[in-house]
């Protein structure tokens, strides 16, 4: 039988995970390790099914998604506006960017104790933290995109007598789009990473991070792994969606270039 190159490469890719899972099941079945520390794949799948068939788990998932998306949207809208503002005006850049760059040196996780002291342990500081995580990459990438608009395009616009608004909407934003799209993808990744920190460090009863934490308190590794797999898959799904949109935006630009 002739196995095509593609099949071979797919087989190669799934080989290792399959071997690892078999090994994992074997170690467990042979009784080398306590199931609290390393549950068997079978146990994980069972826990997975139990959790996903009860409504409570989907409630946790939806709550986490709501949390991350609120923070993400606040972050990208404000970050985009800020990046655009300091990108368009050199004076604004000179006024704001030194402070922005100074504050940026402090990792967002570091802000958590202060923000909790200010706002208490509730939803608001969690969303603020996630929004801040989304703010930096989108602001930086919008700024870079706006500043890197080729001079020729701007000259072209002035030749055709575009006013400032038209210049921004027809030339600057389309030209900066790929960079902005990159910023959005990065921002989503950052928000998602920060969601976990927000749920762990600003304790709450609801959310996937909380479920993982409960798994730890109950010494239930299966529960933790189910949480990790959920978080990983959701993160992957969301990033993929945003990447597809970003890619589509980029392709649009290439098409426009050809005309």
């Amino acid at each position: 039988m002739n196995i095509s190159k593609r099949t071979k490469s797919v087989l190669g890719s799934i080989l290792l995970p399959v071997v690892l899972i078999i090994l994992w099941q074997y170690i467990f079945s042979a009784g080398y390790i306590a199931s609290a520390i390393l549950p068997s794949p079978h146990q994980v799948i069972k826990t997975f099914i139990i959790h996903f068939t009860e409504n409570e788990y989907s409630f946790h998932i939806i709550s986490s998604l709501k949390r991350v998306l609120s923070g993400f949207f606040i972050g990208i809208v404000s970050g985009f506006l800020f990046g655009l503002f300091i990108g368009l005006s050199r004076t604004a850049e000179k006024i704001f960017s030194p402070s922005f760059n100074a504050v940026r040196q402090i990792s967002i996780i570091g802000w958590i104790p202060l923000i909790v002291m200010w706002f208490g342990v509730n939803e608001f500081p969690r969303i603020i933290i996630i929004a801040a995580a989304a703010f930096y990459p989108i602001a930086l990438n919008t700024f870079a995109g706006v500043r890197n608009v080729p001079r020729e395009y701007v000259e072209l616009a002035s030749v055709y007598g575009y006013n400032r608004l038209k210049l921004i909407t027809r030339i600057i934003l389309p030209s900066a789009l790929p960079s902005i799209a990159t910023g959005i993808t990065l921002a989503l990744g950052m928000s998602w990473a920060m969601l976990m920190a927000a749920e762990l460090f600003i304790p709450t009863n609801i959310g996937i991070g909380t479920r993982i934490q409960i798994g730890r308190e109950k010494f239930n590794m299966a529960l933790i792994l189910v949480g990790i797999i959920t978080v990983g898959s959701l993160g992957f799904a969301m990033t993929s969606i945003v990447e597809i949109i970003a890619h589509a935006a980029d392709r649009g630009r290439i098409l426009r270039k050809e005309i």
């Binding site: 690892l20 969601l195 976990m196 762990l200 993982i212 590794m221 990790i228 978080v231 992957f236």
Partner: peptide, 18 residues
Amino acid sequence: SPLVKALQQVPEFAWMPV
């Protein structure tokens, strides 16, 4: 690379409980 990519999807702080 599939394994690395899959593991990379897990946010850093989710590893802490593990």
